[in-house]
Structures are given as C-alpha cells and as structure tokens.
C-alpha cells in the first residue's frame, strides 16, 4: 500500500509537470483547477478505474466525466500519459485543428466520454450513464468530478436528487473543493457550504477527505464501491494551484497560464527543470 502510494505520488508529480509545461506552451487554459484535481485523476486513472487506452470504448470500462471541464489539461495529460493519444498532441492544446479543445470534447479525443465545459451539466450525464449501466446489469462504475463553485448551478441539485431517487450506487461524485472560483472565494461569491450536509440531505452517502492525500482518495473510492442503494459523494478538500507555491490558493490563477518567467520557478517547485 505504501509503495503504491509512493508510485502514485511520483505519477501525480510528473503529471503536474506536464500540466505546467502544456499550459505554458498553449498560453491559454486553466492552471489552478487542473492542479487541484490532478491527485484525484491520478488515483482514478492509475489505480481505481477499469479502462484500456488501447480500446477506449471497452464496454466493461469505468467512466469518468470531468464536469468541471475547464480542468481539461489535467485530464489530457493523464490520458496522454496512459497512451490514449500521443503525448505530442498536448503541444496543440487549444490550437486550431487540435482534438484537444479548450474543454473536453468526446467527438475528437479518445478517452473523453461526453462534452463538458458548461458547468453543472456533467453530473446529469453521469446519472444517465449510471442508469444505462444499471439497466444492463453492468459492473462498470461512473465517476463524476465536480468543482465546488460548480455546485452553485441548480442542475447539480436536480441531478443529485435523481441519483439518490434511482439509488445509483454505481455512481461516485467527487467534488474538487478548492474553495476558489473566478471572482474569488466560493464562500464570498455564493456560499455552497455545508457541501457534505447538502449532499446528505439529497440522499447521498458522503465522505470528506483531504483531496491531496492519495491514500485517503484510494480508501474513499473503495468505500464508495461498498456503499449500496445510494450514490457516494467524496468531498475532497483541495488547494487551488496545488504544488506550485506561488499559484496556491490564488483565485487570480484560475484561468491564467505560467509565464516564461514563472515556468522555471514552477517546475522547480515540482522538482523538475525546463528540459
């Protein structure tokens, strides 16, 4: 277990480096939320989920929907590293003609299940997938990754209500609760707390964890799988910009990419260099 966590930690560190390099090159994209969510994506893609990069449509695969679609760079670097598409594609992020759109697009990118980016919509699609998989008596699971600011969208609560109503225990919702959104602190812009109580009241099993503690993420996802008759929500407390000290907890780095000057310092924070 300890060894596994160490391996995943190193993977997450490398993926953070990929995120920084990719966003520096594209000069456009969302840095803070990509860094806050990458530990969860690392555990999902490299430990928890059943999936096959050589066969992205494997019927028995688990599904991941990044409802906070602006964190696409985090998902893209993981998919590229897993082998869904060549790593060189990352250099074309957000460029004309690239399959790596600003927000996830299932039409062009292997491993992307649906189109997200307009906040609040991914959970409904996850509910639909979970319903379909339950109808088919499939053992596949659905993971929906949400932002905490995203919880301000009313559709999230429509979807949460329906997930509990239909007893979707094959659905696990992860909330990347980094506490920040574009205009500032979530608590100040439009408070969504208490997140855990809200989801409990909507009928879900709720776990609260440190979203950068890989062991805690692994345990929570295992526990979610054992919970029957209702969906599980993992409220993961995270730090926006995690891993790059001068990006951490700054709303101003929501949609800003590392500058030429910041790049070496950011990589240094991550124990890497420009080469």
């Amino acid at each position: 277990m300890k060894d596994k966590i160490a391996v995943l930690q190193e993977k997450a560190r490398k993926l953070r480096v990929d995120i920084i390099k990719t966003l520096h090159r594209s000069k456009s994209g969302h840095t803070g939320g990509s860094l806050s969510v990458i530990d969860m994506l690392t555990v999902l893609y490299y430990h928890k989920m059943r999936h096959d990069p050589a066969n992205p449509k494997l019927p028995e695969r688990d599904r991941l929907i990044l409802s906070k679609g602006h964190a696409a760079p985090a998902q893209y670097v993981a998919l590229a590293d897993c082998g869904y598409f060549p790593k060189e594609d990352l250099q074309m992020l957000r460029q004309l003609g690239s399959h790596l759109q600003g927000h996830p697009d299932s039409k062009g990118t292997p491993g992307i299940e649906v189109c997200t980016g307009s906040l609040g919509q991914g959970l409904s699609m996850a509910v639909g997938m979970a319903l379909a998989l339950a109808l088919d008596k499939s053992s596949s699971r659905v993971y929906a990754v949400l932002g905490d600011g995203e919880l301000q969208e009313g559709q999230i609560w429509e979807a949460a209500m329906s997930a509990a109503h239909y007893r979707l225990d094959n659905l696990c919702i992860l909330v990347d609760a980094n506490g920040l959104q574009i205009d500032g602190e979530v608590a100040r812009v439009m408070n969504v707390e208490p997140i855990a109580d809200k989801f409990r009241a909507f009928g879900s099993n709720v776990l609260e964890i440190d979203g950068h503690d890989l062991g805690a993420i692994m345990s929570a996802l295992d526990e979610a799988e054992t919970c029957k008759g209702r969906p599980t929500v993992v409220v993961a407390r995270t730090v926006k910009g995690k891993g790059v000290s001068f990006f951490e907890n700054k709303a101003s780095y929501h949609g800003v990419t590392p500058s030429d000057e910041e790049l070496p310092k950011a990589l240094q924070c991550l124990g890497d260099t420009c080469d």
């Binding site: 599904r63 299932s106 299940e113 649906v114 609040g120 919509q121 959970l123 409904s124 699609m125 996850a126 509910v127 639909g128 997938m129 979970a130 319903l131 379909a132 998989l133 109808l135 088919d136 009313g154 559709q155 429509e158 979807a159 209500m161 329906s162 109503h165 239909y166």
Partner: peptide, 25 residues
Amino acid sequence: ERFFNMGIAEANMIGTAAGLAAAGK
C-alpha cells in the same frame, strides 16, 4: 424499467438522456 420520470427538472432530464445515449441507449 425503461421509463424514467425525472420530475419537474427538465435540464437534468435532457442531460440524463445524453448520458443514457452515451452508454448506448
């Protein structure tokens, strides 16, 4: 078993339909 009343929540109904379609329904 193949009918889903989504309640008075049309946005979620359409999104759920999209998810069902993505899973082959």
